[in-house]
Design a binder for these strands. Structure first.
Lengths: 336, 336
DNA sequence: CTGTTAGCGCTTTCAA
DNA sequence: TTGAAAGCGCTAACAG
């Protein structure tokens, strides 16, 4: 390995001068700088980031800990983070907790041990993991999922409002027995979306019925099972609001398997878009989240938090939007 | 920050002893070890990985550099890598090069600077990036895309064979003017898949026609444009083989926009599955890759390479499989 | 503007 | 089995 001393020796200067040239912080005589540059090129010198990190007590890497790499929701979110992070001079690495608090804990430990410059995390719900970061003084931004027990900057979408939009839309289209498949009880997003659903029922004077509500796992399989369970319960829904993208897919699969046509026999609206929603037949109505913006905003907050660790906490809530496609066509269609 | 010396002082031993307890390599008197353990717990000591890395000249992190985090192909591949990596004691972080050689170069530089223990990479095609890793002695495994100019372990699928399967299948179904949308010229996977396509045409005595072939960018948009270009060229295809999942989606969109029905007016087979391929209407016939196995195999190779840096290079080729769904129904259907 | 020097926190010889 | 001491490669006071 070529060290800074090798370069210094070849250029006939001290290691400190090489360091100055490399980091461009302090000014160096142009002639010396040129010699150093040449020596670096000649030796193909690459600064050892580990040594630098040790000395500086921090890295220039951000960790983005996401809860499910298989969920396309995170894809453009990550792009948003990357674009801001790269521009600010950070490398962004992704860690996949897979909705597993233990795996999340491992990545949090790694982020801590490796002295990551900052962490953006979509929490599995275990606040302790987040607190560990905060306590260690690592700049953190929570994304998508608020964590009440930890004091961190947060970027959310208006979950309740989005769910309300979706459910209200179904009500307006003439559906009367609207089911809801929400996420795990422990997750605030799941709770909020359920709240929004209930608010819409109330607004439209539709009777709430617990038989129409299920808690899924935010996975395809869970959506399938929840849908099956609702159908089997005899609750006789005529529409369903599924609180995330993968569960919507699962629910649709169940409907296909049972020979229930959408939207003629069952209206469907999902929360969070899926790629190719328009290719799925019928095309899927969904509550669209500004995923790229979500990532961008989180990254911006992180940059600010790093620059000013004591600034007051902030929570940014982004708007969702209802994208109406075919799966929630007016109920009346059935009778045409 | 709590250091090893704080622990040593509290436990009344030397830092070396604490280190021994932490790493469990060398044996330590049980009584002392217990005292050290207690001191660590009391102080909530967390070893500083950066310092350890500097001293040991390597980390326990793997970087997986993928070319497009938006492509679901990489999702389960990453899971395969993670499962093996975690079991072997490594943390796995993901880097998204976004098909951009410059971005890739940045992540390669980061992996090098951070002394990553190993790298698994789906190359953008710029061999120099890979060579840099190899030259620095970093254990590397190339995945999905072979890199001829660099000497690395490689895990591939039988691209030519898969493309041949897909094209032959279309031919057997009665399609006669089969178009091909392959990937970027620079990528070996694109070349191989095109080869497979051509081989099938030959086998079925179908006349090759360059108007039926396009080089896309492996993105949705590129698939759309390639499809449009083929249609506009007057080449009059009756089927299309698209060489990756996202381009298949793009091609389908184009067909939808033009009011061309699948498979009645156009048979379609894609390479590489997409999630919800069965929900898309018509459901998509695709060449399925063993993505999880691909990741697993790469990780296994990496483990071996790390253990034995001088072992001979190996290339593992995994089988693809044709999944026949509705988009490639027999041509005769049209006349029924 | 430049060089000297002292560590960052840890592991690992080497002696005891 | 344990401790002392050196040093991984770099940066940042501090002097000059």
């Amino acid at each position: 390995m070529v060290t800074i001393y090798d370069v210094a020796k070849l250029a006939g200067v001290s290691a400190a001068t090489v360091s100055r040239v490399v980091n461009g912080r302090s000014s160096v005589d142009a002639g010396l700088a040129a010699r150093v540059q040449q020596a670096m090129a000649e030796l193909d010198y690459r600064p050892n980031a580990v040594a630098r990190n040790l000395r500086r007590q921090k890295t220039s890497i951000w960790a983005v800990i996401i809860s499910d790499i298989g969920n396309p929701f995170f894809t453009s979110l990550v792009r948003g983070v990357e674009d801001v992070g790269q521009a600010a001079g950070y490398s962004v690495v992704l860690c996949n907790s897979d909705e597993d608090p233990a795996k999340e804990a491992r990545y949090v430990a790694a982020a801590l041990a490796e002295q990551m410059a900052g962490v953006i995390i979509s929490s599995t719900g275990k606040a302790a993991n987040l607190s560990r970061l905060v306590d260690a003084g690592t700049p953190v931004v929570a994304i998508d999922r608020e964590v009440r027990a930890a004091a961190v900057d947060t970027v959310l979408v208006d979950n309740a409002h989005g769910a309300d939009l979706a459910t209200s839309h179904l009500a307006e289209q003439g559906y009367r027995r609207i089911a809801c498949i929400t996420g795990p009880r422990r997750l605030p997003t799941a709770q909020r979306r359920l709240q929004g659903y209930r608010a819409a029922l109330t607004a439209y004077r539709l009777e709430p019925d617990d038989n129409l509500v299920r808690y899924g796992d935010y996975r395809e399989e869970g959506g399938y099972q929840a849908m099956a369970s609702i159908l089997d319960s005899g609750a006789a829904p005529d529409a369903v609001f599924a609180a995330n993208n993968l569960m919507t897919v699962g629910a649709l699969e169940c409907l296909v398997d049972r020979g229930i046509t959408v939207p003629a026999q069952m209206g469907v609206v999902g929360f969070d878009d899926i790629p190719w929603a328009h290719l799925v037949r019928p095309s899927l109505s969904t509550v669209v989240q500004p995923t790229y913006e979500l990532g961008r905003t989180a990254a911006l907050l992180l940059v600010e938090r790093i620059a000013e660790p004591t600034r007051p906490l902030s929570t940014v809530t982004l708007r969702t939007e209802l994208k109406i496609r075919d799966s929630s066509a007016p109920r009346e269609q059935r009778f045409r």
